[in-house]
Amino acid sequence: MRSITISLGRFLLLAVAAVYYILPLPARRRRPAALGFCRRGRRRISPMEAAAAVASRCSGVRCSPNRTHKQRRQQRSAPRVGFVSQPQPRAVCCKRSPHPDARAHSAAAAAAAVGEKVGEAGGDGAERKRKRLAVFVSGGGSNFRAIHEAALRGEVNGDVVALVTDKPGCGGAEHARGNGIPVVVFPKSKSVPEGVSTGDLLNSLRGLGVDFILLAGYLKLIPVELVQAYPKSILNIHPSLLPAFGGKGYYGLKVHKSVIASGARYSGPTVHFVDEHYDTGRTLAQKVVPVLANDTPEQLATRVLHEEHQVYVEAVAALCEDRIVWREDGVPLIRSRTNPDEYT
């Protein structure tokens, strides 16, 4: 009886083993990687990593975040696998771009457009060197102020770097000191012992790198040494239409009194280059001002001075922009800023 029981037990064990090894067990459920798991191992990946993986497979293509109808239907019909799925990155519908380097082409086109604009503005794109100006005054210096203010506004491609005067207490000198412009007193005399000599003045101007000299109501005759050191680089403004009413002794109200007394119907300022004599240099620009029947010297002077401020600034601007052209007979002309074929 005991042997029968042992045999029966062995038979049952063999039967169980046969069933275990012969019959297939249910397939082990696998959690798909698309739902946030790696296929190898059990490490969970984040939605951001899944999105990065999708993006890496779609590099170089233009993608749309909208899912297709087929993808939505497959997602709805997908069986649940026994756990709560994590939010999945949205499926993408990819279409290859006809120009993968479109942004590079756009950047190159934009750079080319900018280059064309720079070329139109400045030729080779380089800015002109600003000229350094020295202004000579003997009085209030209204023309000096007009030039200085125009330079500050950018209308003149230059900077006033020195003011030279024979009267250190004049209005022009005070304006220069108030704006940080060095004041040089010239010439030296008994009444002005602090003045400098011609040689010292030249050294000062050269030390400041002065390109042009502008006379704005300066009553002294310019030394020959200075004229020779700055050929075709010294301008003066006179309150009459030269060569009429010019020369030694013609300045201020004396000019306007002479114009009215002569019966002249027109007057106006003249901008001219400076030579070794009073008011005999080549004329560069003029403005005509009518003389009215009942004009006083003061009234005429006011209207002429208004034109002086405009014509002198225009002439200095042309000088600083290298738009002065000398004709074969020695007459200076101003080339138009907008049309190089026009001269005044």
Results as ranks from 00 to 15, higher is better:
residue 316 V to H: 00
residue 68 T to V: 10
residue 315 A to I: 03
residue 253 L to G: 03
residue 81 V to D: 10
residue 175 H to W: 15
residue 206 R to E: 15
residue 66 N to H: 13
residue 209 G to H: 10
residue 41 G to E: 06
residue 167 K to N: 11
residue 74 Q to F: 15
residue 201 L to E: 03
residue 253 L to H: 04
residue 332 P to R: 07
residue 6 I to T: 09
residue 275 D to F: 04
residue 141 G to S: 11
residue 326 W to I: 09
residue 127 E to D: 11
residue 9 G to L: 14
residue 114 V to K: 15
residue 242 L to D: 04
residue 236 N to I: 00
residue 117 K to R: 11
residue 98 P to H: 07
residue 279 D to L: 04
residue 10 R to L: 15
residue 98 P to M: 06
residue 298 E to Y: 08
residue 36 G to Q: 03
residue 190 K to Y: 06
residue 216 A to N: 04
residue 152 L to Y: 01
residue 332 P to I: 10
residue 48 M to G: 15
residue 312 Y to N: 04
residue 181 I to W: 02
residue 302 T to R: 13
residue 177 R to V: 14
residue 96 R to C: 12
residue 182 P to C: 06
residue 76 R to N: 06
residue 100 P to V: 05
residue 134 A to F: 00
residue 290 P to Y: 11
residue 9 G to W: 08
residue 321 E to Q: 06
residue 260 I to A: 05
residue 317 A to L: 03
residue 269 P to H: 02
residue 116 E to K: 12
residue 211 D to S: 11
residue 105 H to Y: 13
residue 138 S to V: 02
residue 224 V to E: 14
residue 87 P to D: 13
residue 52 A to S: 13
residue 208 L to F: 13
residue 63 C to R: 09
residue 161 V to R: 12
residue 49 E to W: 12
residue 242 L to V: 09
residue 82 G to W: 13
residue 302 T to W: 11
residue 238 H to I: 07
residue 74 Q to A: 15
residue 291 V to T: 09
residue 149 E to F: 03
residue 120 E to S: 08
residue 148 H to D: 08
residue 171 G to N: 09
residue 89 P to L: 10
residue 141 G to E: 05
residue 290 P to L: 11
residue 336 S to W: 02
residue 135 V to E: 00
residue 179 N to A: 09
residue 320 C to P: 10
residue 295 D to P: 13
residue 181 I to E: 00
residue 38 C to A: 07
residue 306 H to T: 08
residue 210 V to N: 02
residue 145 R to G: 01
residue 71 Q to R: 12
residue 66 N to Y: 11
residue 68 T to S: 15
residue 31 R to T: 05
residue 49 E to R: 15
residue 40 R to Y: 12
residue 204 S to V: 14
residue 3 S to Y: 08
residue 54 V to F: 06
residue 95 K to H: 14
residue 288 V to Y: 03
residue 243 P to T: 08
residue 176 A to E: 07
residue 166 D to A: 14
residue 2 R to N: 14
residue 223 P to K: 02
residue 254 K to I: 07
residue 87 P to K: 10
residue 231 P to Y: 06
residue 196 V to C: 10
residue 52 A to G: 12
residue 326 W to L: 12
residue 331 V to Q: 14
residue 165 T to Y: 05
residue 189 S to E: 09
residue 134 A to H: 03
residue 15 A to S: 14
residue 271 V to E: 00
residue 183 V to T: 11
residue 174 E to S: 12
residue 189 S to Y: 10
residue 233 S to P: 07
residue 239 P to V: 01
residue 4 I to C: 14
residue 2 R to C: 09
residue 111 A to K: 13
residue 32 P to H: 09
residue 264 A to T: 04
residue 291 V to E: 06
residue 20 Y to N: 04
residue 134 A to V: 01
residue 74 Q to M: 15
residue 146 A to P: 01
residue 167 K to I: 04
residue 33 A to T: 01
residue 337 R to M: 07
residue 98 P to C: 05
residue 145 R to K: 03
residue 187 P to A: 04
residue 190 K to R: 15
residue 73 R to D: 14
residue 11 F to N: 07
residue 312 Y to E: 02
residue 323 R to V: 01
residue 20 Y to G: 01
residue 201 L to S: 08
residue 30 R to M: 12
residue 82 G to Q: 12
residue 39 R to D: 14
residue 296 T to I: 06
residue 325 V to H: 12
residue 292 L to N: 05
residue 281 G to V: 04
